[in-house]
């Protein structure tokens, strides 16, 4: 995965996710929208297959990089919790 920052200021972040799809980005968006400091979080692919998705995040004055980092760590924690529950269920 390669990330390209297209736009970045105090409260806005536009990023290109090379080779990523709904699998991760939908999860990331859902996680970001749970955060009250986020004004909007969305992503769009100009032309499917040919273009990389662009993720757009706007916050209510907080550092978007920090908020994105926290959302990513929440996903990591979710995966850990899932793996733990899953392995326990399989016995």
């Amino acid at each position: 995965m390669d990330l390209k920052i297209i736009k970045k200021d105090e409260e806005e972040l536009h990023m290109e996710f090379e080779g990523e799809s709904h699998t991760l980005l939908n999860l990331l968006r859902t996680e970001l929208l749970k955060d009250e400091r986020v004004m909007y979080a969305t992503y769009d692919t100009k032309f499917t297959i040919m273009d990389n998705p662009i993720f757009k995040l706007r916050t209510r004055g907080e550092d978007p990089l920090e908020i994105m980092k926290q959302a990513a760590s929440r996903i990591t924690a979710q995966c850990d919790e899932f793996l733990q529950c899953y392995n326990a269920a399989l016995g």
Partner: peptide, 26 residues
């Protein structure tokens, strides 16, 4: 049963990479 574990690990790995990149940039 292993397929599901690998899938969850794959998502985890990617989320971790985003976290690392964000830490590098800020």
């Amino acid at each position: 049963k292993d397929l599901v574990v690998k899938a969850a690990e794959e998502i985890r790995h990617r989320a971790e990479m985003i976290g690392e990149k964000m830490a590098d940039l800020s």
